[in-house]
């Protein structure tokens, strides 16, 4: 009877897996198939060639990549020292900081961007003194606002990654050991803490990358020619190219995922041995 029950269960799980696979893969397969039919009566990669040939594609893609890199740097500089400090001296505040890091899931990007537009279109003044010039008046300084916004959007992922990384090492003891050997804060951060966060930072960075490169709302409303808005416009004017680029961006995401799991696996052994 047990064997039959087990067989029933495995039947059931197979059905679930198949339904799930169809649900996820069918649109992809469909999109891929459609992207190959840009030329009448034959299958070809013409849609891909045309998409890649558009100078606007290259421009916006490179632009978004630069934004992603800037965001990753800003977010590492913000989140690593903060999280480290919380681990070291304010462990009780960890739930609070975690809740703050999750705010982007609660507050939609559209709210964030209209807040930015309201605040930064004019100079920011405190008690009548202009503290910050109107950042949104030039496109160069608009980038600053955009990167700041992306840093906020990537916070849930980056914070979680860094928090996990720090939890895997004995932050407090390592810091004290380094201090007693004469190290100051800079040395401790760069030679002891960051190297042990390599894996965590890499996965946080890849996720940040994926978010920034595809982001639409902030870029559109701040009027930045990034990759997200470009894809959207393409979708309104062309038939086959958007499918081709969708497939390409899926592939990029998958490559990123494989990279993450690959790098992470190489590290678990050493992390397990450090207790």
């Amino acid at each position: 009877m047990n064997a039959r029950a087990a067989r029933n269960v495995s039947w059931f799980s197979w059905i679930v897996i198949v339904i799930g696979a169809i649900y996820f893969l069918a649109p992809l397969v469909g999109t891929f198939a459609y992207s190959l039919t840009a030329l009448r009566d034959q299958l070809s990669f013409a849609a891909y060639q045309r998409a890649f040939a558009d100078p606007k594609f290259v421009e916006s893609f490179v632009y978004s990549n630069l934004l992603a890199v800037a965001t990753i740097i800003a977010s590492v500089l913000l989140i690593v020292p903060t999280t480290y400090w919380v681990h070291l001296y304010l462990p009780k505040l960890r739930p609070v900081v975690e809740a703050i890091s999750l705010l982007p899931f609660v507050i939609p990007a559209i709210t964030l961007v209209f807040g930015y537009i309201r605040v930064y279109s004019r100079p920011v003044d405190v008690l009548g003194i202009d503290l910050i010039p109107p950042l949104l008046s030039t496109s160069a300084s608009t980038n600053i606002v955009l990167v700041a916004g992306y840093t906020v959007l990537s916070m849930p992922y980056m914070y979680r990654a860094v928090d996990n990384g720090l939890r895997a090492i004995d932050v407090r003891r390592l810091t004290e050991a380094a201090q007693s050997l004469g190290a100051g804060w800079g040395t401790i951060l760069f030679r002891v803490i960051l190297p042990n966060l390599r894996t965590a930072l890499l996965s946080g960075a890849l996720l940040t990358f994926a978010i920034v490169v595809g982001e639409l709302t902030l870029a559109t409303f701040l009027g930045i020619p990034a990759f997200g808005p470009y894809l959207q416009q393409l979708g309104q004017h062309k038939a086959y190219e958007p499918s081709a680029l969708t497939i390409v961006s899926f592939l990029l995401t998958w490559v990123a995922m494989v990279l993450i799991s690959f790098v992470t696996r190489g590290d678990t052994r050493s992390a397990a041995g450090t207790h």
Binding site: R173, E176, V192, P195, N196, G273, T274
Partner: peptide, 10 residues
């Protein structure tokens, strides 16, 4: 010297 060794794992 600490009870938990506290060697730098990297």
């Amino acid at each position: 010297v600490f009870q938990s060794y506290a060697l730098f794992p990297n």
